[in-house]
């Protein structure tokens, strides 16, 4: 597994004249849980969308396990966006079957057992579920894939503390040496125990990329504290 899971070389994305990402160079290895941290509008979501193939680069390139975004890379990436993206009219079970149909790496038993432990009724129509439950269903579907790259955009925002623990626990249980988990979040203090490494990004540019424990050892600070210093308003 010598090849990086996610690699960006000179990655730049313009929206009109606004550079959402500028000359980003980064290489993420497998077997790590990495935090993507930065203020609003720093380019976190743009980076994630580029890795998913939802946006095309203006300049530079992005590679997932060596593949440019396309059919092969999408089969390796499991993406959890901030919003609910499952069709309203499908039942929970239909969503599972859908994922099972399209993704060869989908673990059906895992998804079913996770939903059972969350007590989500299998035949409930998505539209009838509360926002929190919908998010849980999405998380279950995303984490039931044996993907190489997990891209989680604000997975614990807007969720109660118990659910937060459950979500982080699921991420940890799912850990594999062959995959990389990239978590984009504002809730640094809640998440940093779980991170191997962190990325600071601002104005579309890379500010830091380091190991969390190294930073704690060197500076005697938490990532949360360090963030506040670096991105002081």
């Amino acid at each position: 597994m010598s090849e990086p899971t996610l690699e960006c070389r000179g990655l730049t994305k313009y929206f009109g004249t606004n550079p959402a990402l500028h000359n980003l160079n980064i290489s993420l290895p497998a077997g790590k849980i990495i935090g993507l941290l930065g203020p609003n509008g720093s380019g976190k979501t743009t980076l994630i969308k580029l890795a998913c193939g939802l946006l095309t680069p203006s300049e530079g390139e992005v590679r997932v396990c060596g593949y440019a975004p396309g059919v092969e890379s999408k089969a390796l990436v499991s993406y959890l966006p901030e919003r609910t993206y499952l069709p309203d009219w499908m039942t929970v079970m239909e969503c599972i079957r859908y994922f099972q149909d399209f993704y060869a790496d989908f673990d059906y038993e895992r998804a079913v057992s996770m939903l059972q432990s969350l007590q989500v009724p299998a035949n409930a129509v998505m539209k009838t579920l509360s926002k929190g439950t919908k998010e849980k269903v999405q998380l279950v579907l995303v984490m039931s894939r044996r993907a190489r790259l997990y891209l989680l955009d604000e997975p614990i925002g807007g969720v109660d503390p118990a659910a937060r623990d459950y979500i982080l626990g699921t991420i940890l249980k799912n850990y594999s040496e062959e995959s990389t988990v990239l978590i984009s979040t504002h809730l640094i203090a809640d998440v940093e125990k779980v991170l191997d490494e962190f990325i600071f990004i601002q104005n579309g540019q890379l500010v830091s990329y380091a190991s969390t424990d190294s930073l704690r050892e060197d500076l005697g600070k938490s990532i949360d504290q360090y963030f506040r210093e670096v991105f002081r308003c």
């Binding site: 998913c52 193939g53 939802l54 396309g70 059919v71 092969e72 999408k74 089969a75 990436v77 993406y79 966006p81 919003r83 609910t84 993206y85 499952l86 069709p87 399209f102 993704y103």
Partner: peptide, 13 residues
């Protein structure tokens, strides 16, 4: 709309 996030991340052309 939002379902596009699902459709365009499927491993299909």
């Amino acid at each position: 709309s939002d379902e596009g996030y699902l459709t365009f991340t499927l491993p299909v052309t």
